[in-house]
Design a protein around this nucleic acid. Structure first.
Lengths: 111, 111
DNA sequence: CAAACATACATAAGTTTCTTATACATAACA
DNA sequence: TGTTATGTATAAGAAACTTATGTATGTTTG
């Protein structure tokens, strides 16, 4: 995996955005979706993903629903009402972050 | 300081980009420059900055030159040759990162 | 048909990067 | 004379991650 340090700190925002967009998703599905969208560039590891999901749930931003599909367990996550509000904030922070990083990297656009 | 988690991992890239652009800079100058460029949104703390500079120096990416200006010490840092090459790589990673994050957040542009 | 790969979740140990707090020193300002 | 600005530094702790491992089922392939 060639994930750079830059992705550190962005995992929660990625998870929440995907859930906002897709209604409900399970962990493995999230990793596959991210891989597809980034053309294989970003691979979320289970060691990062599952603790992150558990924490978002503990914070009240996600609800869980367990289903047994094809004899295999799936834990579907979806945003709570509080999680939806938080997602809006985090996406706004992400936009600010990207804008700031672009100002730093591309100073010609600093106006 | 309202820095979000998102900036985690981006400090080294920011430092190296500013040094690439400005030739040589000292620590305090970097914090002020970043604050100015981001209109006060990103405030790099000393506790993050100085260890980062020391590490980049230890890795051979930065050279130091101490000057005494106005009776106060300044440690000017500049990129080594190796540091310049590494900066190109990190800026390329940053561009990929930003592109990927925009794909994730703005799926309409996924083509 | 056995081994490898894909699906699916989980956690523990260790690393890295950061925040927070503290420390030292000079200069300017109110 | 106390606060703010300039300037560097480190130590303790928190947070997010990587790496490794574990469990279990289903599918594909040599």
């Amino acid at each position: 995996m060639k994930n750079s340090q830059l992705y550190k700190g962005s995992l929660n925002t990625i998870i929440m955005k995907l859930l906002e967009e897709n209604g409900k998703m399970y962990g493995y599905e999230i990793t596959q979706k991210v891989k597809a969208i980034t053309q294989g560039e970003l691979n979320i590891t289970e060691g990062a993903l599952y603790p992150a999901l558990h924490k978002l749930e503990a914070e009240g931003f996600l609800d869980v629903e367990i289903e047994k599909i094809d004899n295999r367990m799936r834990k579907y996550y979806k945003l709570t009402e509080s999680g939806e509000k938080e997602t809006v904030n985090r996406l706004s922070e992400l936009e600010d972050f990207i804008r700031n990083m672009q100002s730093l990297v591309n100073p010609k656009l600093e106006f």
